[in-house]
Nucleic acid binder design. Structure first.
Lengths: 203, 203
DNA sequence: GTAATTTCGTACCGTTTCGTACATATTTAG
DNA sequence: CTAAATATGTACGAAACGGTACGAAATTAC
């Protein structure tokens, strides 16, 4: 696996990984329909046919971007949620990690590719399915984390708490796009974490 | 005001109000960029130049649609929030009224024009500003209602509770678009209302 | 060297896009 | 009945769109 068998023809000179990164950022900024293949070609540095060969048509490019973004976010933020310690701290740290992604470094927050821009494009079945998967993932991870923290809590209460935590994250994307500051949302996240803890502890 | 002074030229034969309604529904379904003027022309029955004369260019059409949608939603749902009685019931009824709008009647939920599709298009400054206004409105109405219900509660706690309630509503749009059923969200709304009540009552 | 193989971008195609010029229709003023 | 005024849709234009055919470039196999 480490040694490439040296294929036959002209060697590939394209960095698909960094190209996908640029694709993610552009879709995050402008949504799906508002981004043209020429825009993508410009930011990636790849010609339009190269984009095609690497990622397929525009729709599959967007779905790939959703997958790449989701994976990055999971790797960066999920460990915070699943860390040992009390639930409130884990939730707070998880929210902050996600906010770090939502706000990137620019002045204008690009927000979440999945929760922020995908809902506008669910008439494409593949996008809708991937959005649903993303929501489901967050819901179930939240639920698992809460079950771990409160093994004796009744499941319906866990379910409610998990949905509320997910709702917080989902709403953050819209708030970020609307112009809220990262500090604002960080505070809301911390306080929501406390409240959810309150709910779960009030047996 | 009742008697029209009978203007000079050809009388207008276009129902701009029902046309705007059709515009709202189409933008709600497909977002901003994915909708063409021809699409709008088809669903409204107005020719493209007529749309132009009535509502200006595509961007101002979308902003007008946001205003129309926001006003409709406010008239239908805000009375539920501001009704007398305990906060939990008011919140629950408000969420249900909004869900009635989000799910319209079709199989595929069109969700919220403001919270659901606008975040994907905030690179247009006017859309971003209108989205921010919408979030602000919900936040402040929530806060006012909670202050009325709990006049002695400290303001920071009110603030948190209000943001959580808003977050619930904002997230509903994404969940609706992703395929959640109206009953699902209705239950989440009711339980979130209970939890927010719990937070405010735990002095 | 030459042929086979793979990668890559130029140049092109048909369609769709937004926006408008302009002719036509329908009314009131005189 | 004629002229002025207002409303409306046909028909057009320039640009941008997604997508691809095809030739040039770069490598290995022999």
């Amino acid at each position: 696996m480490t040694e490439s068998p040296r294929k036959r023809g002209r060697p590939a000179s394209i960095d698909t990984q960094s190209a996908m990164h640029a694709v993610v950022e552009l879709f995050r900024d402008k949504g799906y329909a508002a981004v043209s293949l020429d825009d993508l070609s410009e930011t990636t540095g790849l010609s339009r046919p190269s984009l095609y060969r690497a990622f397929g048509n525009k729709l599959s490019m967007y779905v790939s971007a959703m997958n790449a973004f989701g994976q990055d976010a999971a790797e960066l933020a999920l460990p915070k949620l699943e860390a040992e310690g009390d639930l409130e701290a884990a939730l707070t740290n998880f929210f902050d990690a996600m906010l770090g992604i939502y706000y990137r470094d620019s002045d204008v927050a690009p927000g979440c590719l999945i929760f922020g821009t995908a809902p506008a494009h669910v008439d494409e079945a593949e996008i809708k399915a991937r959005l649903n998967f993303g929501i489901d993932q967050v819901d179930s991870r939240m639920r698992q984390r809460m079950e771990k923290a409160f093994p004796n809590c009744e499941s319906s209460r866990i379910e409610t708490a998990a949905r509320m935590a997910s709702n917080t994250l989902i709403a953050f994307s819209a708030r970020a796009k609307a112009g809220a500051t990262q500090q604002d949302l960080s505070e809301i996240g911390a306080e929501s974490a406390q409240t959810i803890g309150l709910l779960l502890r009030s047996a």
